[in-house]
């Protein structure tokens, strides 16, 4: 492929590190502690203890006490400021509150006409406040990436600790992926026929129910987050019944990467387009349809599907990472 020679594509598919060779890099040097170093450090701390004057000690003690008092004072002052602020807020549930008579009334009155969603809540979170929901989906993605960094197991074991190494430098006792798999096979009962039969019957029902909840997000309570959670639960049940070998045939890290990437990108582009046209008073060209039908309410249905995919993949990825350290 000619296109893949492009530096951007090479970086995008993770083949090469574009920064490699252009930035001055130096591997971290091994820190060795000799006996004379240790003696020096100990000598320093000993002399510090010895040379302190009585007056200095008093001053330090006074400072520590003052510090505590000041901390308490600061916290109390902060709480007081916040409480005073809250006490000036309009009374909860009052009829003449600004929140009560503008925003929510507008949502309730014209939400159905403007968004086309029968369920006002979905119309709110996926139309009026769609960027908020976009942030939530991104938070899920970032959380998975963080857990991946923390819990991911290496393909090969790290070099074993040398004898003279200080404690903080020794590599942690980590398993490789193959070891973790064999351990999963040894320690956890996998070939439970009863569970497999029941899971084979229940998992499709769970998926169908989750898809129903996602697709009816703009008509009835539910939507992307809850439906995605149900599909994720179905995936976890399947994994528990049949083990990692079966799930790895259709769900690996690559699947997760592409599904999340396409969902989040589609969400971002679609919502940017709709906000752009909305802000400039242009015709968006997306039909709202008749309220109450499945194919209605414009962008809300595809956005719900995107959110559902991200949530389902995130649930499964969390479980797999915590169980085995990879998926």
């Amino acid at each position: 492929m000619k296109r893949k020679d492009n530096a951007f594509f090479r970086w995008f598919f993770g083949e090469t590190d574009t920064m490699l060779g252009r930035v001055e890099m130096r591997p971290q040097q091994e820190y060795t502690e000799t006996a004379s170093d240790i003696r020096e450090v100990m000598q320093d701390s000993l002399t510090q203890d010895q040379t302190g004057d009585e007056e200095d000690f008093v001053l330090i003690r006074v400072f520590h006490r003052l510090y505590r008092v000041a901390a308490v004072f600061f916290c109390v002052a902060l709480i007081a400021v916040l409480l005073i602020n809250v006490s000036w807020l309009p009374k909860n549930g009052g009829a003449d509150n600004p929140v009560n008579n503008e925003v929510s009334a507008r949502y309730i009155e014209s939400g159905l006409q403007e968004t086309g969603a029968v369920n006002i809540v979905t119309g709110m979170i996926l139309d009026y406040r769609a960027f908020d929901t976009f942030g939530e989906s991104n938070v899920l993605f970032i959380a998975t990436v963080t857990v991946l960094i923390l819990l991911r197991l290496d393909k090969e074991k790290k070099a074993p600790a040398k004898k003279g190494m200080p404690v903080y430098q020794r590599p942690k006792d980590e398993l490789t992926i193959a070891q973790a798999q064999s351990r999963d096979r040894i320690y956890e009962p996998k070939n439970n026929v009863i569970l497999q039969v029941v899971a084979g019957f229940l998992v499709p029902i769970l998926f169908i129910f989750g898809i129903y909840v996602i697709l009816n997000g703009h008509l009835s309570p539910g939507g992307g987050f809850s439906g995605g959670a149900i599909i994720g639960a179905g995936l976890i049940l399947y994994l528990n019944a049949f083990g990692f070998e079966k799930t790895e045939r259709f769900f690996t890290e690559k699947t997760y990467k592409w599904v999340s990437f396409f969902s989040l990108t589609f969400y971002c582009l679609a919502k940017s387009y709709s906000f752009f046209t909305g802000a400039n008073h242009l015709e968006s060209g997306i039909p709202l349809g008749t309220p109450g039908a499945i194919l209605s309410s414009g962008l809300i249905l595809p956005l719900n599907i995107c959110v559902g995919l991200v949530v389902a993949c995130t649930m499964y990825a969390f479980y797999a990472l915590f169980r085995k350290g990879g998926f």
Partner: peptide, 8 residues
Amino acid sequence: MISFLAVV
């Protein structure tokens, strides 16, 4: 569903 999954 969730309580069954929890037991499993």
